[in-house]
C-alpha cells in the first residue's frame, strides 16, 4: 500500500498534516507540491470540514427556527430551544448593552466550535484511512500522500480566524460605543494617569504599550487556548491509536474525558467572546 516505510513518527506526522491546495505556475497543486507556497496555501480539509459543520449547524437551527411557534414544542424543538435559551441567558447575564449581534454570534461560536471539536471523538484513523482508500482507488494516488485532518479546531488557522473575527468586533464595539477618542483614551490614559501634563505625556507610551498588550493578548488567548486543547487531545488520540490492542480501554477513557474538554472549550470560547465584547462596550474601564 504505502511505498515508503511507515514509522510511528511518520504516522503521527501524516495525521497532523493538513490536505493543502495552492496555485503554482503549473496550475493548482496539492499537498507536498505546496511545501514552499507560503501564505497562499489553502488547508482544504479544514475548510471543507469546518464549512460543512457550519452548514450542519445552520441547517439544524434553521429548520428549528422555521417550525418555531408558541405552541407546545416537540422534542427536537425543545432541544434546540434549550441551547438557544442557554446561550441567551449567558449573554443576558454578561452583556448588559443592547445588541442584536452578540447573542447570534455567541450561538454560532458555541455550536460551531462544539461540532468541530466533536469530530475529535471519531476514531482517528477512520476518516483519514477512508480518504486514503478513496484517493487510491478513484484518483490513483499513493494513499500515504492523501492527507485528512478532520478536526478543524486543531488547525491554528481555524481558531485564529474565530479569534480575529472576535477581535475585529471588540475594536468595532469599542469605537462604536466610546467613539474613536474614547477608544484611544482607553489605550493611552490608563492604567497610569497623572494630573501633571508633562508627566502624562511621559506616561502615555507606557500606557499604550501595556494596554495594547492587554488588548492583543485577548485574541491570542482565545485562539491558542482552543487550538492547544484540541491539538493536544488529538495528538493523544493518535498516540493511543498507535499502541495496538491496549488502545481500546485507553481510547475509551481518553474519549470519555475528552467529551468534557469538547463542551468546555466551546463554552469557554463563547463565554470569553461575550466577556470581551462586554468589556469593549462598557464605558468604565
Amino acid at each position: 500500500m504505502a511505498a515508503e516505510e511507515v514509522t510511528l513518527s511518520s504516522h503521527i506526522q501524516h495525521h497532523l498534516t493538513n490536505a493543502k491546495m495552492c496555485s503554482t505556475d503549473a496550475g493548482l497543486a496539492f499537498n507536498k507540491a505546496c511545501a514552499d507556497s507560503g501564505f497562499w496555501t489553502w488547508n482544504i480539509d479544514t475548510l471543507a470540514w469546518s464549512i460543512g459543520l457550519g452548514l450542519v449547524f445552520l441547517w439544524i437551527f434553521r429548520s428549528a427556527a422555521k417550525k418555531a411557534n408558541t405552541g407546545v414544542p416537540g422534542k427536537f424543538q425543545c432541544f434546540i430551544e434549550m441551547i438557544v435559551e442557554f446561550v441567551g441567558d449567558n449573554v443576558r447575564d454578561t452583556y448588559h448593552g443592547k445588541s442584536s449581534l452578540i447573542a447570534p454570534l455567541a450561538l454560532t461560536i458555541f455550536v460551531w466550535v462544539f461540532l468541530m471539536n466533536l469530530m475529535d471523538l471519531i476514531p482517528v484513523d477512520f476518516l483519514p484511512a477512508f480518504a486514503g482508500f478513496v484517493g487510491e482507488q478513484a484518483f490513483g494516488m499513493d494513499s500515504h500522500d492523501v492527507y485528512m485532518k478532520i478536526v478543524p479546531t486543531t488547525d491554528i488557522n481555524m481558531t485564529a480566524a474565530l479569534a480575529i473575527g472576535v477581535f475585529i468586533l471588540m475594536i468595532g464595539y469599542a469605537i462604536k460605543i466610546k467613539g474613536i477618542g474614547g477608544f484611544l483614551a482607553e489605550l493611552t490614559l490608563h492604567p497610569f494617569s497623572s494630573k501633571n501634563k508633562l508627566m502624562m505625556v511621559f506616561l502615555i507610551p507606557c500606557n499604550l504599550l501595556l494596554e495594547t498588550i492587554a488588548l492583543v493578548a485577548k485574541p491570542f488567548s482565545l485562539a491558542l487556548r482552543l487550538f492547544g486543547n484540541l491539538y493536544a487531545g488529538e495528538l493523544i488520540f493518535i498516540l493511543i491509536g498507535a499502541v495496538g490492542l491496549m488502545q481500546l480501554p485507553l481510547h475509551f477513557i481518553w474519549a470519555a474525558f475528552h467529551i468534557l474538554v469538547i463542551v468546555l472549550q466551546a463554552f469557554v470560547f463563547m463565554m470569553l467572546t461575550i466577556v470581551y465584547l462586554s468589556m469593549a462596550s462598557s464605558d468604565n474601564h
Binding site: 479544514t46 464549512i51 488547525d155
Partner: peptide
C-alpha cells in the same frame, strides 16, 4: 503556519 485558510475561515465565520 498561518495560511490563506485563515481568510477563508474568517469569511465563513
Amino acid at each position: 503556519n498561518l495560511t490563506a485558510t485563515l481568510i477563508g475561515e474568517l469569511i465563513a465565520f
